[in-house]
């Protein structure tokens, strides 16, 4: 028996080392692009060590028994009677208990590490909608830059304050690691410090309906100078746009993610296209038809469920709370699309 124990002991060690080396060299995680990712990967590495060892600890003796203690041909007797060993049983309860508690403790520390606060962090407001993201930067002189792309300077912590207009979404950039749900009716926060320039994608990780799979927006991490340059251009555009109704309308449309459902070039989508909308004849679900005018568009936006266009029964357009001026701006914008 003693010989068996020694062999299995060696096997367990060899096997855990091999599994660990295998997993480690497989490069399982995406590239590290944030300070938080370093912490997460540290924990992951610890897990890989634990998993490799525990897997070997069970599977090595199991396989060994299967080979060495298999029933020989012609043997019909039972094995040696052995009911248990209280000391052993206590050991394999207490030892794992300590391991998991230590492990949970490390987990808590690790969580705290990913939540380090930089009081200087730039605040970006994130809105999730079906099925698009919008990012709002701190306003300058009353003008706010609203973007569909997330541009961030490298090395500076950002605080995302996130909310949703409709259903639950989840903000996830795999290269940043951490993810956070975006919940209607509350503001959730996430802190990230980008560390690697490059372009990534923020991918919505919570099932949010039909086009959940396509709710991905670009994330661009660049040097502070490049970021500033981008921001200045975006700010200029925002200032110009805020001068005309169409411009304001377009900004509103972009901020509220209407494009996720409505195309502006006639392409089919979740909702009817806006191309040539004014003046078009629409067939409704109750069989009647309407010629689209400004009043109808107004109603479609303020009370989307009042009249439903045929073929779109299964899609619900969200209700928005716009002011009258805002609706007028949007209509002005839609009118330009022909």
């Amino acid at each position: 028996m003693r010989r068996h124990f020694i062999i299995v002991g060696i096997l367990v060690i060899v096997m855990s080392v091999l599994i660990y080396i295998g997993l480690d060299s497989a490069g399982l995680m995406p590239v590290v692009a944030s300070a938080q990712a370093v912490d997460v990967d540290w924990m992951w590495n610890l897990e890989v060590i634990a998993m490799s060892f525990l897997f070997a600890l069970i599977v090595a003796p199991l396989t060994y028994s299967l080979i060495v203690f298999r029933r020989r041909k012609g043997d019909t007797t039972d094995a040696e009677h052995m009911e248990g060993n209280t000391r052993l049983e206590i050991a394999w309860t207490i030892v794992p208990l300590f391991i998991v508690m230590a492990y949970a403790y490390l987990g808590a520390i690790n969580l705290a590490a990913t939540q380090r606060v930089d009081p200087q962090a730039m605040v970006v407001r994130v809105t999730g909608l079906q099925w698009d993201w919008t990012f709002e930067y701190p306003s300058v002189n009353g003008v706010t830059v609203v973007s569909k792309e997330l541009h961030l300077p490298v090395g500076q912590q950002v605080l995302f304050r996130m909310t949703s207009n409709d259903v639950i979404h989840s903000f996830w950039v795999p290269e940043f690691r951490l993810k956070q749900d975006v919940v209607p009716g509350r503001i959730t926060e996430l802190r990230i410090t980008p560390t690697l320039e490059g372009s990534y994608k923020v991918r919505c990780a919570e099932l949010c309906g039909t086009s959940h799979a396509f709710m991905e927006n670009p994330v661009i991490i660049s040097s502070q100078e490049e970021f500033d340059a981008w921001f200045d251009v975006a700010l200029d555009e925002a200032v110009t746009a805020s001068q005309t109704p169409e411009g304001r309308g377009q900004a509103l449309v972009s901020a509220n993610g209407c494009a996720a459902c409505h195309s502006i070039n006639g392409a089919p989508g979740i909702g009817p296209t806006w191309f040539g909308l004014i003046g078009r004849t629409e067939e409704l679900t109750d069989g009647s038809t309407v010629v689209v005018d400004e009043a109808y568009v107004h109603e479609s936006i303020s009370a989307p469920q009042a009249k439903i266009v045929a073929g779109f029964e299964n899609q619900l357009m969200p209700t928005y709370s716009f002011t009258e001026e805002q609706i007028a701006d949007i209509i002005a914008y839609i009118t330009t699309l022909r």
Binding site: M1, H4, I58, P61, L62, S65, L66, F69, R70, R71, R72, D75, T77, D78, A79, E80, M82, G84, N85, L88, E89, W92, T93, P96, L97, V100, M101, Y103, A104, G107, A108
Partner: peptide, 29 residues
């Protein structure tokens, strides 16, 4: 997190017991 990890303990008891049951048996497959 603490309570979740606690489940590993009774589950582990099962695994260790299975391994020990097989150890030194006369295994048919």
């Amino acid at each position: 997190m603490y309570s979740t990890l606690l489940v590993a303990v009774p589950t582990g008891v099962k695994f260790f017991s299975w391994v020990a049951t097989m150890w030194g048996g006369k295994i048919e497959t």
